[in-house]
Write a protein that binds this DNA or RNA. Sequence first.
DNA 1: TTCTTCATGAGAATCATTCTCAATGCGATT
DNA 2: AATCGCATTGAGAATGATTCTCATGAAGAA
Lengths: 143, 143
Amino acid sequence: MTSTSRKTEDPATAPSIAGARPTRQRRAVASALQSFDDFRSAQDIHDLLRRSGENVGLSTVYRTLQALADNGDVDMLRTEEGEAIYRRCSTSHHHHLVCRACGRTVEVEGPAVEKWSDSVAAQHGFTDVSHTLEIFGTCPTCA
Amino acid sequence: MTSTSRKTEDPATAPSIAGARPTRQRRAVASALQSFDDFRSAQDIHDLLRRSGENVGLSTVYRTLQALADNGDVDMLRTEEGEAIYRRCSTSHHHHLVCRACGRTVEVEGPAVEKWSDSVAAQHGFTDVSHTLEIFGTCPTCA
DNA sequence: TTCTTCATGAGAATCATTCTCAATGCGATT
DNA sequence: AATCGCATTGAGAATGATTCTCATGAAGAA
Ligand SMILES: [Zn+2]
Ligand SMILES: [Zn+2]
Ligand SMILES: [Zn+2]
Ligand SMILES: [Zn+2]
């Protein structure tokens, strides 16, 4: 390899925001996201960082999380109460099976659902279609 | 008909809250819900009532809407921003196809989706399963 | 009507999220 | 290294939806 600078994309590691500076704060948030498997709120993640010694402003946590979500690098959904919660995720389109008790989350795919959704929308003449779908239940451990 | 008092359930009209007093305010909210076809926020509905002459406190609008939603008499979902919005709906389980531009909403059913959801959850050992599913798009009129 | 209980609403309180904007950090360029 | 230009940060104020408080009013039973 020559001395030419390259984008060094870590294969399976924390995501970075396209066209943004990889600051200490953004790295810290991205890293924190790797440390849990359930959905957490911006404030939860802020606390997590605080406790782990990383000092990141709450505003920055909000901003970073939103940027990552817009970028498709984390999944964001809303609690019953309307609070935004985040979780790292695979990049392909998928949905979630979430435990109501402990928050444990499984990513699931359903090609049939995708097709159904598009077809139903088409039947009614809707275009530019998207959808949201989450499944909630009690996981084996919590049952 | 005798003079015996009965529960007069209007067949296809505004819903009432089970075990609650049918007050002027609750009737007004239930009635307002009959006057639109898209999803509206509590505050929108409060304004609607205000403008139509009915004077109902904002707290009461919130309380009534939540009670109706808990009762399954109206559907509640959340905007991208997390705001709760409400709409009268049929009593059977269904989902929504919503126009992003004008809010026009179509109720849709998908037995296959219901089965898929339950089966996926079961495969992962989840019990007591429920789900949320909404489809968004641009309606023919807005296209 | 009288009593008991539930419902109402004006305004304060909550609480997540956004905004403000001066201070700072990053990267590129001399 | 010194410097300029601009993105980023964060403390605290502001916002805005929703909830709470609690004194007052209405509904229903007897
Ligand atoms: Zn669980
Ligand atoms: Zn999907
Ligand atoms: Zn439309
Ligand atoms: Zn369903």
